[in-house]
Amino acid sequence: MAHTETTQTTRRDFLYIATGAVGAVGVAGMIWPFVAQLQPDASVLALSTTEVDLSPIQEGQIITTQWRGKPIFIFNRAPKDIEAARAVQLSQLPDPQLDQDRVKKGHDNWLVVVGICTHLGCVPLGHQGNYDGWFCPCHGSQYDSSGRVRVGPAPLNLAVPPYAFNSDTKITIG
């Protein structure tokens, strides 16, 4: 008698557990589409590359363009800007990085950075501050002519987006 009871209990428990488990899988499966819809949609993804023509940018000029809705600074640096950037000792930088690593080889005058302050996301102002680079009006961070942070609360250098030169005067960002 007792033996039979035990088997019955086990079988019933198994049924309950199986039903519960399958139900849980179903709930998880149902949640997924409602989470997946939050990610960037196909029309946003289709715009994820931007082509920029560099020919109209004069030496010493900074232009702002857009990539994925973010400002991108393109700086046609004069030789003195490059020299200044390369003369700095890495030990003086909060986020040490060589200027050579922030530009494409053979196109050393072109600096392409995401124009968003690494502190809290404001857009820094060009040709301002003490380092011939950018000055962020929100909390006073300053960047040099290589877009590297020199002073202020920002922890990192301005980010370099993925880009490539299609020709000497054309780049594709993204």
């Binding site: 049924l15 199986a18 039903t19 399958v22 139900g23 899988v25 179903g26």
Partner: peptide, 9 residues
Amino acid sequence: FLIVLSGLL
């Protein structure tokens, strides 16, 4: 899936 689940239920 729903047929399996409804069967179990």
